[in-house]
Design a protein around this nucleic acid. Structure first.
Lengths: 189, 189
DNA sequence: TGTACATCAGTGAACGCGCGTTCACTGATGTAC
DNA sequence: TGTACATCAGTGAACGCGCGTTCACTGATGTAC
C-alpha cells in the first residue's frame, strides 16, 4: 500500500492541519490519534511513519496554527480591520480555525519548551505589529505604543476567551461589541 | 474504618478544594482521581461515597474556585488594588490558587451546562463590580462604565494568560507591568 | 525502455498502561432499646 | 448508662475501556542494472 512520496508528504501535511484544528476544538487530551487519522482518512497505525510521538505532532500543530494566525493578522489593512475580525461572532464560533492562544492558552502554559518558545516568538511578532499600527495612529514615535499594544493584545485574547466561556449568547455578543469599541475596532483609523 | 460525620464532611470539603487547585494547575484531564485523593490523604476507592463522578466533582470544584475568586476580588478596597493584585507576578506564579478563568478558560468552554452557568454568573458579578468602581472614578452615571468594565475584565484575563504562556520571564513581567498601567493599576483612584 | 529487487507508506491486530468506576470487606460511628 | 445491631466512610483489589505505541505484513513506488 505504498503511496507516492508526493502523496505521503500531502498526508503528513493534512495530519498536521487536522490536528491543529481538532486540538483547538477539543484540547490536547480531548482528541486521540485515531480520531485525527480517521478525519484525515487513514488508519492510526501509519501515524508513526510521520511522527515520533503525539507530543511531537502537538508541537508542530501549534506552530502551524500560530503561523497561520500570524499570516491572517498580517493580511489586515488596518488595526480596525484586525480588531473587528478577531472580535467577530464568526471568529468566536470558529474554535478550530481561530486564534490558538485563545483556544489553548491555558494548556500552552503546561506544554514543553518547543511549543512555548514558538508561542513567545508569535507574541513578540504580534506586539511589534500592533505597536507599529498604534504608533501610526497616534503619531510617529509614540513611546506608549508598546504599552498600548500589550493592552490591546491582552484585551483581544481575554475578550475572546470570555465570549466563548460564557453561556448566554446576549452577554457573549455584548462582550465582543464592547471590546471592539474599546480596542479601536469601531473608530476610524 | 468509618469516621465521624464531621470528619467525613471535612474530607469531602478537602476533596473539592484540592481538586480545585489541581485542576487549575494541570487541567481537567491532567489530574486523576487517585492523585486528588492521595493529596487529601485518602485512597481513591472512597471517592464515590462523596461524588457520583469525576465530572460532578469538576463542576463543584469550579464553582468553589469561582466563589473564592469572587470573595477575593470583593475584598479589594479599590480598582487599583484589584488590578495590581490580579496582574502581580505572585498571581501569575500561583496557578493553583489563582483566577479560574485564566487557568481553565479554554477548557471551561468545553464543559457542561452547570459549569458554564456558574461561570456566566461570576462574569456578570465581576462586570457589575468593575462598572461600579469605574463609574465612581469617572463620575456617577457614566454610560461608558459598563463597556470599560468589559474591556478591563478582558484585559486582565488576557494579560494573565499571555504572561503565563510566554517563555521569557522579562517579556512576561513586561506584559504584566504594561497591563497594570493600561488598566488603571498604576494611577491614583 | 524493461525487468528485478529494495524500500517504505499504510494496514490492522495486539500490547500495555493509566484511569474512571465498581465491589466485597472492614471496623468505627451512630442509633434503638 | 449500657448493650446489640445497623450504618456507612474508607480500603484495596479488580474490572474495563480508551488510547498511545509497537509490530508483522502488504503491495505499490522507487531504483539499480
Amino acid at each position: 500500500m505504498r503511496v507516492t512520496r508526493e502523496k505521503a508528504a500531502e498526508n503528513r501535511e493534512r495530519i498536521v492541519t487536522t490536528a491543529a484544528k481538532l486540538f483547538r476544538e477539543k484540547g490536547f487530551d480531548g482528541v486521540g490519534l485515531d480520531a485525527i487519522m480517521a478525519e484525515v482518512g487513514l488508519t492510526h497505525g501509519g501515524f508513526y511513519r510521520h511522527f515520533r510521538s503525539k507530543d511531537e505532532l502537538a508541537a508542530e500543530a501549534i506552530a502551524r496554527g500560530l503561523a497561520a494566525s500570524a499570516e491572517k493578522q498580517a493580511a489586515h489593512a488596518s488595526l480596525q480591520d484586525l480588531v473587528c475580525a478577531y472580535l467577530s461572532p464568526a471568529h468566536r464560533d470558529d474554535l478550530g480555525g481561530g486564534c490558538v492562544v485563545a483556544a489553548l492558552g491555558g494548556d500552552i502554559a503546561r506544554q514543553g519548551d518547543g511549543v512555548r518558545r514558538g508561542l513567545t516568538a508569535y507574541v513578540r511578532e504580534q506586539l511589534d505589529r500592533l505597536a507599529r499600527w498604534l504608533a501610526g495612529r497616534n503619531g510617529k514615535r509614540d513611546p506608549a505604543a508598546r504599552e498600548q499594544a500589550i493592552a490591546t493584545l491582552a484585551g483581544l485574547v481575554g475578550a475572546l476567551v470570555l465570549a466563548r466561556a460564557v453561556d448566554d449568547p446576549a452577554l457573549s455578543d455584548e462582550i465582543l461589541a464592547a471590546a471592539r469599541a474599546a480596542y479601536g475596532g469601531a473608530e476610524g483609523s
